[in-house]
Write a protein that binds this DNA or RNA. Structure first.
Length: 117
RNA sequence: UGAGUAAGACAAAUGAUCGCGGCUGCCUGAAGGCAGACGAGGAAAGUCCGAGCUCCGCAGGGCAGGGUGCUGGGUAAUACCCAGUGGAGGCGACUCCAAGGAAAGUGCAACAGAAAGAUAACGCUUUUUGGAGGUUAGAAGUUAGAGGUUGGAAGUUGGAUCCAGGUUUGGCUUCGCAGCUGUUCUUGAGUCUAGCAUCUAACAUCAAACUUCCAACUUCCAGGAAGUAAGUGUGGAAAGGUGAGGUAAGAGCUCACCAGCAUCCAGGCGACUGGAUUGGCUAUGUAAACCCCAUCCGGAGCAAGACCUGAUAGAGGACAUAAAAAGCGGCAGCCCGCUGCGUCCCGGGAAAGGUUGCUUGAGCUUACUGGUAACAGCAAGCCUAGACAGAUGAUCAUUCACGACAGAACUCGGCUUACGGCUUAUCUCACUUU
RNA sequence: CUGGGUGUGGCGCAGUUUGGUAGCGUGCUUGAAUGGGGUUCAAGAGGUCGCAGGUUCAAUUCCUGUCACCCAGA
């Protein structure tokens, strides 16, 4: 995923945590906030209690791959943070994909035209 | 063949599609696009040591504090590595060891035990005082006794004898009575003798008890003096060990063997090792208790540090204006007072942003030389991640042993810890075959 | 990156300095007291002292390694 689609600065993370809306799922938590920018920025957060560095990196990579494929279908102009819960330990790629799709639909971040077709 | 042992290598592989990171090259005004090769580990981990590097501090020395601790070597350095010494384990190959000093000093060693580092509070031995005994021998006395001898007394039984009486019977004298004599039985008294039992006296003997005296030996209790480290048992540990002699009891007091210390000699750079018909006979354990000795250590850390941009607050200076407008206070107006617009400079430096530090280095591979080795020297070749919310993923196919521990974050050298397996190869032991 | 602390009955904590007996409060069980409950009183049970190794005669304590948690600074 290219750099301009990533949420990077600590300030942006803090601002999104404070002002954004949150949605829950057994595996993930979604926090999103609409912005005036045209771009969409996505960040990921995994607690240290999730596991060692290998496990934390792996689940971030899998989420990044899922979101890379979903990116063209998302609405523009918002910041998104995915927080990984401890229950996601050992979850398969497909179950993560389902969780991401469900959360994005509930947040109504998916483009309308795509959903109708 | 099996079991072990030591040293290493690898850490699923291949292909396709879509993606990620920086680098290089090309295109483009730029954003960006295209192509190429490259892109996590043996531990990247823990952060336990040691360095480089950077900043701060620094005249010299000492104290405090901390680290290290057999010897020699290697290294930039080390708590690391190599070689050796000593100790422990293993049949062995081999492995492991924080391994200086306990006669510099202090502390501690619970309970048990006489006693825990030197003492005599237990005990043992000798001696002595006092008390209570015991045994043996002697002397004196007393008491009751035993048996013996001698004597006496009275009793009883038997025998003998004498006397007296009675009786039977014979003989003699006698007619008869009567007498004399002998005999049988018997009674009484006496004498003698024997036995038995009793009493008594004397003598000597025996054994006993008691009292007194004396002597010897000995037991117990209490105390004093001296000697002693042998002692059951306790304990993790008991004062060099075992045996023999020796002694009042004992003791390296003496001897033999063994062990330890010191000294001397020999070997080794050294730790240390070997030897001695040498010497005195010994000094417990704990220093991962304080400590002593030797040696080392300035502090902080890449969020170090350097460069660029420069928010807010506070505050200063210079220039310009001192006209108008505006705000506040004096109720309002007038008037008065205060503030005030602009530009530049200095200063400040936000968990701000960017660039850098950032990967060519005590580097890797191979060969040679020196060295037992760690390692060093030299030659040739090679360039091998550099991110900053942090790059390796997803899908599919094939194969297998079905994939463990685990993700660089300034860089190295070590150590420690985690780890499914696979493989190379040294040596040892056991078994079998030839 | 650096420094520091904690881990002990179910829970919250002492004891570690100076090694030898693991204790307190609360909770639990049983009994007494009450018509019953609470309070109170008495008795009792409950401990791999985070884990592993070492030093020592002996370790909760000393040392090393390791695990988990917490705090502070840049």
């Amino acid at each position: 995923m290219e750099k301009k689609y990533r949420l990077r600065r600590n300030k942006d993370f803090q601002y999104t945590y404070k002002k954004g809306r949150s949605l829950g799922h057994p595996l993930l938590v979604l926090i999103y906030r609409k912005t005036r920018n045209a771009d969409i920025r996505i960040g990921y957060s995994v607690t240290k209690k999730f596991g060692n560095a290998v496990q934390r990196n792996q689940i971030k990579r899998q989420l990044r791959e899922i979101l890379r494929l979903q990116l063209p279908e998302l609405k523009q102009g918002c910041d998104i943070i995915f927080i990984v819960r401890r229950e996601a330990k050992g979850a398969s790629y497909k179950s993560l994909e389902e969780a991401v799709n469900q959360l994005l639909k509930r947040a109504k971040l998916v483009k309308q035209g795509e959903t109708h077709t």
